[in-house]
Write a protein that binds this DNA or RNA. Structure first.
Length: 479
RNA sequence: CGGGAUGUAGCGCAGUUUGGUAGCGCGCUUGCUUUGGGAGCAAGAUGCCGCAGGUUCGAAUCCUGUCAUCCCGACCA
């Protein structure tokens, strides 16, 4: 092929080998580098900047809902982790232990936090005395360690960055409200900012968090039809409070246990962004979190006036509040086009001698590849419109993929056929018995993703055993 | 944790069968010419051949171990 692209920067086609495509993207878009320890990755400036933007948006939403940030220790004494039985059973197999201080063995070994429920409980036990001390609405930004066997950048690493909210409430109802409210915050982050449509619902008992009474989740469908659990919110009832002896004096002067929630969202969300929006040319970033929203590229930049015009253009867009970069390096225009497409920059603005003469510029969209010539007079408005249209298109495309890959199956035969046809979401009736869940895992290699809040009656019968259906469940293969 | 594959220059790879001076392409540096879809010419620089043992006069190459990465399963954000 005479016009074949240079192989150096080429990425594996998305529909040829999705896993390899993903790996190519995270490396070539310079999001991460591997370290010498399995499962521990280096977040490079461009990848970390995406996380910072996610953090900024989410943190604002947490503050708006009355939460405060705190920081708790990295290490948890073994005895503290042991206090709640379900919790320790769930996490013990995958925690990392600190056994020595210098060369001296420790009297009690310490685990590196896999999550901080136990630490928050210990602290809450100290600071909660009265109903006047409630609610406690805390959040922390930190990293946690879980000794995973299989690791992949963003999707599953042994250390990952996240936020974990931990709250305590006077009543069951208030804690339940909080649990749902924070899931709603995650849903808004995904759908309004990251342009990722999600299915919100409740986890089955088999899939819920260790120690929780109920776990709620948002599930996003990736380009290949697999599901990614993108954020979870847990309702604990007063189980941990009882285990940790956290009590408060209620309004009626009785001693009560407070009700607790926790909720988390991690850098895994960056994996969701990649696998939802990306294409054969690389990453496509939603404008809300793109480190560079607009790249300005001068054409024939050595000709008089071009660099100056490009600089003026950048300054105008910056003044308009956009994250914009001017690339006046000596690379050829074609190289730069490909480079910024790889990195998923939403809009490219080209300006060359021809444009300067016409008081115009060329705006190219990353999602459609469309190029339009625009007058410089209304530059800011044009760019904003294009960014909004791009964001909407990302959402619409992702939703279309999910719709195309979603099936409602009334009986086992239909489910089996749907699974064989394409990866996706399969909605069925379910009796509520974990045995039926395990049957589907074994035979069809699918797991329950959630029982959607928007319950749609698919069948009166469980898809496996045929008994009365108590819930509608969305099944799928998950990352 | 099982099954498969791979570690050689920043990236992609050849060289390993049959042990004998470390190679190619791209990138990088410098200079000139270029610039609306991955530019051209010229001159340069870059290697503990993943790591540790062993065999040998001699190891990128043979043996043992180990670490890491990728893919596929089982487990998890």
């Amino acid at each position: 092929m005479a016009n074949e692209k240079k192989l150096v920067e080429a990425i594996t086609p998305i529909n040829e080998d999705f896993a390899q495509w993903y790996t190519d993207i995270v490396k070539k878009a310079e999001l991460v580098d591997y370290s010498s320890v399995k499962g521990f990755v280096i977040l490079r400036p461009y990848g970390y900047a995406i996380w910072e933007n996610v953090q900024h948006i989410l943190d604002g939403m947490f503050k708006d809902t009355g939460h405060s940030n705190v920081y708790l220790p990295l290490l948890i004494p073994e005895s503290l982790l042991q206090k709640e039985k379900d919790h320790v059973d769930g996490f013990a197999p995958e925690v990392a232990w600190v056994t020595h201080g210098g060369s001296e063995p420790l009297a009690e070994r310490l685990c590196i936090r896999p999550t901080s429920e136990t630490l928050f409980c210990e602290h809450y036990q100290h600071v909660i005395q009265s109903y006047r001390d409630l609610p406690k609405l805390y959040n922390q930004w930190c990293s946690v360690v879980r000794w995973e066997k299989t690791t992949r950048p963003f999707l599953r690493s042994r250390e990952f960055l996240w936020q974990e909210g931990h709250t305590m409430h006077e009543t069951r109802e208030q804690a339940e409200f909080e649990t749902q409210q924070m899931l709603g915050v995650y849903q808004a982050l995904c759908e309004k900012h990251l342009m990722i449509p999600v299915v919100a619902g409740k986890k089955t008992d088999k899939e819920k968090f260790a120690g929780a009474e109920a776990t709620y989740t948002i599930e996003a469908m990736m380009h290949d039809g697999k599901s990614l659990q993108s954020g979870t919110s847990h309702f604990f009832g007063d189980g941990f409070a009882r285990a940790f002896e956290i009590t408060f004096t209620a309004r009626d002067n009785t001693l009560q246990y407070p009700f607790q929630t926790s909720w988390g969202l991690s850098t895994r969300i960056i994996g969701a962004i990649i696998m939802t929006h990306g294409d054969d040319n690389g990453l496509i970033l939603p404008p809300a979190v793109a480190p560079i929203q607009v790249v300005v590229l001068p054409i024939a930049q050595h000709k008089p006036g071009v660099i100056e015009a490009a600089g003026a253009l950048r300054d105008r867009l910056k003044a308009a509040g956009l994250r914009v970069t001017l690339d006046d390096s000596d690379q050829s225009p074609g190289w730069k086009f490909a480079q910024y497409e790889m990195k998923g920059v939403p809009l490219r603005v080209e300006i060359g001698p021809r444009d300067i003469e016409n008081n115009s510029c060329v705006i190219a969209r990353r999602d459609t590849g469309e190029k339009v010539t625009m007058s410089l007079d209304a530059l800011e408005d044009s760019v904003r419109q294009q960014l909004d249209a791009l964001a909407q298109n990302l959402y619409d495309r992702a939703l279309a993929n999910r719709v195309k890959r979603s099936r409602s199956c009334a009986d086992y035969g239909a489910l089996e056929q749907a699974v064989a046809e394409q990866a996706g979401f399969y909605q069925t009736g379910w009796c509520g018995d974990v045995a039926c869940e395990e049957t589907l895992k074994e035979k069809l290699e699918i797991s329950s993703r959630c029982m959607p809040f928007a319950q749609e009656r698919v069948s009166d019968h469980c898809v496996v055993c045929g008994k009365e259906a108590k819930h509608t469940v969305v099944w799928g293969k998950a990352y």
